[in-house]
C-alpha cells in the first residue's frame, strides 16, 4: 500500500519537472515550429546563473526569479540574433527543414562547451530551499517532502499562468496566430518576428525553472556536462511528444504520465529498464498516435 503510494508520489514529482521542460519545448515549437534541443543548455546556463545568485544573496527564491528572467533573456537573444537570421538565410529547399534542428543541436554543444570553459571543474551545488525529508503519516515516511510539494505546486502554477496568457490575452492570441499561420497573422497586423521572440523568452523562463527545481531535488550538483540536464531534455521531449507537442496542458499531462510510468518501472521492476521504457513509450506513441495521446482537439487549443 505505502509502496504504491510512494511510487505515485515519486512519479508525480519527477513527472512535474519533465512537464516543465516539455512546456518549454512546446512553447518554442508552437511559436516557431522549431524543436529546440538547446533548451537543456539554456536551462543549465540559467541554473548556473541562479547558483551564482544564491552564492551572493543566499536566497533560493531570488535566484529562481533571476534565473527565469535570465533564461528568458538568453532565449530571446538566441531567437532574435541567431534563429531569425537562420530562417532568412535558409528559407528554401531541403535545408530549411533541417537547418533549425541542427542549429539548436549546435547551440546545445556550444553553450555546454562555453560553460565548461568558464566554470571549469569548479564544484557547484544548490541546496533545497525547504526540507527534502518526507512527510510522515502514522509512522511511515512518505516519498513526498515539502520540496517535492513545492515543485509540483510551482509547475501547476506556471502551467496555469502560461495557459491564461495563451488563451485569454491579446499577446496570447498573437502568439497562437503567429504559430499557426504566420502569413495571416502578418496580414492582420501582428509583428510576427517580435511575437516569436516572446515565445522563445517564455520557454526560456520555463526551462530555467525546470533546471532550478530539478537540481536541489536530485543530489544538488551542477556541472557543465551534467547528465541530469541531458536526461531532462530527453524526458521533457518524450513528454512533449506524448502530449502532442502543441498543447501546454498536453505537455504537463505527458510529463506526469511519463513520470508515473517510469516510477512504476523503477520501483516494481528494475532501474535498468527505465531508459528502455521511456524510449519504447516514445516509439509506441509515434507509431500508434503520432498526434500525441493527449493531443485532442480541445487540448490542442489550451
Amino acid at each position: 500500500m505505502y509502496k504504491f503510494l510512494n511510487t505515485v508520489l515519486i512519479g508525480i514529482t519527477s513527472g512535474a519537472i519533465y512537464s516543465l521542460m516539455a512546456l518549454a519545448l512546446v512553447l518554442v515549437w508552437r511559436s516557431t515550429r522549431v524543436v529546440n534541443f538547446a533548451q537543456a543548455g539554456q536551462a543549465l546556463l540559467s541554473t548556473y546563473i541562479g547558483y551564482e545568485v544564491i552564492q551572493n544573496f543566499h536566497s533560493f527564491w531570488l535566484a529562481l526569479a533571476i534565473a527565469m528572467v535570465a533564461g528568458a533573456a538568453v532565449a530571446a537573444l538566441i531567437d532574435a540574433i541567431f534563429m531569425r537570421t537562420l530562417f532568412k538565410r535558409a528559407a528554401e529547399g531541403p535545408i530549411a527543414g533541417v537547418a533549425p534542428i541542427i542549429a539548436t543541436l549546435g547551440l546545445l554543444g556550444l553553450i555546454r562547451a562555453l560553460l565548461g570553459l568558464v566554470v571549469g571543474g569548479k564544484e557547484a551545488s544548490i541546496r533545497p530551499p525547504v526540507s527534502n525529508i518526507g512527510f510522515t503519516i502514522s509512522g511511515h515516511t512518505l516519498a513526498f517532502s515539502p520540496l517535492k510539494l513545492l515543485i509540483v505546486a510551482s509547475v501547476l502554477f506556471l502551467m496555469l499562468v502560461l495557459s491564461l496568457i495563451f488563451q485569454h490575452t491579446n499577446v496570447g492570441l498573437a502568439l497562437r496566430a503567429s504559430a499557426y499561420a504566420p502569413e495571416i497573422a502578418r496580414l492582420a497586423g501582428v509583428k510576427v518576428d517580435g511575437i516569436r521572440t516572446l515565445g522563445w523568452a517564455l520557454a526560456g523562463a520555463a526551462g530555467a525553472a525546470a533546471g532550478m527545481l530539478q537540481t536541489p531535488d536530485g543530489n544538488g550538483a551542477l556541472s557543465p556536462d551534467s547528465l541530469e540536464f541531458s536526461l531532462l531534455l530527453v524526458f521533457g521531449f518524450i513528454a512533449a511528444v506524448i502530449g502532442g507537442l502543441e498543447s501546454l496542458v498536453g505537455a504537463v499531462l505527458g510529463g506526469l504520465l511519463l513520470g508515473l510510468v517510469l516510477a512504476f518501472v523503477l520501483i516494481y521492476i528494475s532501474g535498468s529498464l527505465v531508459f528502455i521504457t521511456a524510449f519504447v513509450l516514445l516509439i509506441i506513441v509515434l507509431l500508434v498516435k503520432p498526434g500525441g495521446l493527449i493531443g485532442s482537439r480541445r487540448g490542442r487549443r489550451a
Binding site: A174, A177, I184
Partner: peptide, 17 residues
C-alpha cells in the same frame, strides 16, 4: 484566409489586435 485552430471570435479579434 482564416486560422482554423482559433475560434470565430478570435479570428475576428485578430484583425483588430
Amino acid at each position: 484566409s482564416v486560422i482554423p485552430e482559433l475560434t470565430v471570435k478570435e479570428n475576428l479579434h485578430l484583425g483588430a489586435l
